[in-house]
Design a protein around this nucleic acid. Sequence first.
DNA 1: TTGAAAGCGCTAACAT
DNA 2: ATGTTAGCGCTTTCAA
Lengths: 341, 341
Amino acid sequence: MREATLRDVALLAGVSPRTVSNVVNGYARVTEHTRAKVERAIDELGYRPNVLARNLANGRSGQIAVVVPYLDTPYFAELLQAIIPRARDRGYNVLIDQTDGDPDHERELIRRGGRALLFDGMIFSPLGLAQDDLADGDPELPLVVLGERVSNGVFDHVGIDDVAASREATAHLIGLGRRRVAAIGDQPYPTGEAAQLRTCGYRRAHEDAGLPVDESLVIRTPRFNRADGSGAMRHLLDRDDPPDAVFCYSDLVALGALHVVLERGLRVPEDVALIGYDDIEEGRYSNPPISTISPDKVAIAATAVDRVLDRIGSEERLPGIEVRAAHRLIARRSTVGRAAG
Amino acid sequence: MREATLRDVALLAGVSPRTVSNVVNGYARVTEHTRAKVERAIDELGYRPNVLARNLANGRSGQIAVVVPYLDTPYFAELLQAIIPRARDRGYNVLIDQTDGDPDHERELIRRGGRALLFDGMIFSPLGLAQDDLADGDPELPLVVLGERVSNGVFDHVGIDDVAASREATAHLIGLGRRRVAAIGDQPYPTGEAAQLRTCGYRRAHEDAGLPVDESLVIRTPRFNRADGSGAMRHLLDRDDPPDAVFCYSDLVALGALHVVLERGLRVPEDVALIGYDDIEEGRYSNPPISTISPDKVAIAATAVDRVLDRIGSEERLPGIEVRAAHRLIARRSTVGRAAG
DNA sequence: TTGAAAGCGCTAACAT
DNA sequence: ATGTTAGCGCTTTCAA
């Protein structure tokens, strides 16, 4: 049997479609009597509004896109887990896209190529695109950028203070008496902005302590994953003068590095102390658990969702704002040893 | 400026909307000449079809829902990473939903409550719903169920042979000379079907080897996560007669268990051998890496997507089929020690 | 092969 | 407070 339409309900209840619409959407005031009649008709027919028709009439899809480089990166998975319910609470569905860091794919998305109108706004964690590329996006698209970029006044940006956090992480290692602190995860201009900010914080911490930076201890990696961490760590341990501590630009990098250090029969943190970034659950269960920079993911998710929906709901084009979420350093056994319990 | 519509293109090209539609969709035959004219007009106006309108006219959303209990479970994240591109290749978007294993939420989804018509089909990994509950779903909804269930002839089911895989995993431990093999992850009827199949395989392996099952070594856990693995392992190690090997019903459980074993100063695999299930990347980087049952995730994803889209495309209601994907046992250091390299 | 026109089911401006 | 009605932009039947 055909699905009941709003019109069917109106006919059965003996009112106009307009009134049914009012009841369904909670608009305007409707007499208690009328409302009851309409609701009875809705139940009787098992009426469910057709989202597709509503979308067309509204010119809105009721969906936001969340674009991340990799879905199986725990940090993004944890972030998504916070974003989805937040959006749902506000009546929005989330469309997830992974780009694999492909610049063309990313560019197409912010231009709303292809699937135009499928989403009303976007939360975007760019990887392959440089700051300037973001300017080419569809200026009508309500956009919140996650991560390390700096807002250019057009879109919003939500993230933690990467320089400060990296400085703290590095200072933590130096404060533990380490003198040869390596960094794994630097990336070249122009796309590796997140990485560059972290390297900047790493340098600042050295300056603060009056220590020189041994440039050969700053290792570049293509991504922030376990394999990159392992590879870089192997390289570092093959040296005649290996580091006694490493600041890793993600927890995955730290876990990859940890794997290699233990494999070589070295001890963590006695021989090499390790600190990561992101505070993913996996880092709390590794052996030893890894110290890390913990960004307030729930705040980041909530802010990003609220802001993109505000933009969608607003008539005027809102100016881009910059939001800094909180972060804190969590010291675990990979830096402080048994002292961390 | 307003977005160009199909009508605008038709006007400019001097043809009817019908013809433009034919060109855009590659339908029917269109004269080379007409097509060229239309295409020129499309370029000139920067015309992009309005997906919302198309959806309404077609009565299709062009989206499939993928419903998983938890997005931040690496197994699901890895599966999704395979599902999304496959669906995209076939012109479909993926809508991701997480249920937290909430039975009501799951029930609502398979009934297409609320957001009816938002998706044309669904790939569903149930957790809170029992086999019988699935029968209440909207029978019109093209549905592919993932995991352990058995198809009831209405929907499709894609998964590996859990009993066989669990039997292999347990046999692997027994074959290594272990005699007190525990199992972590059993769950009670009626919802814990996946778990029960694994327990069944565990028992079979004992029968095969002529060993009795010590029922007190079969530990129930609410979920399959790290914390459950840790808790259960603590419980087992507190006994006077702890096990010398553990079959864990997921890699996360195994990682949680591993954490506890090492924390107590015991050795893996010398004191306790551990094997997991799912072959998530994390298990390859733990120390030691964990042995596991590796399901063919790419095949599972591809089969599920293809099947649900076939159902969507088909006029008649297809009968439910049962698809078994391949799996294999991967022996790593958590069971075979240094021998695994 | 192409045109004309009737929906798809809902929203909202306008009217009462 | 409720009814009337004209779209939203596309697809597709029916005619030509």
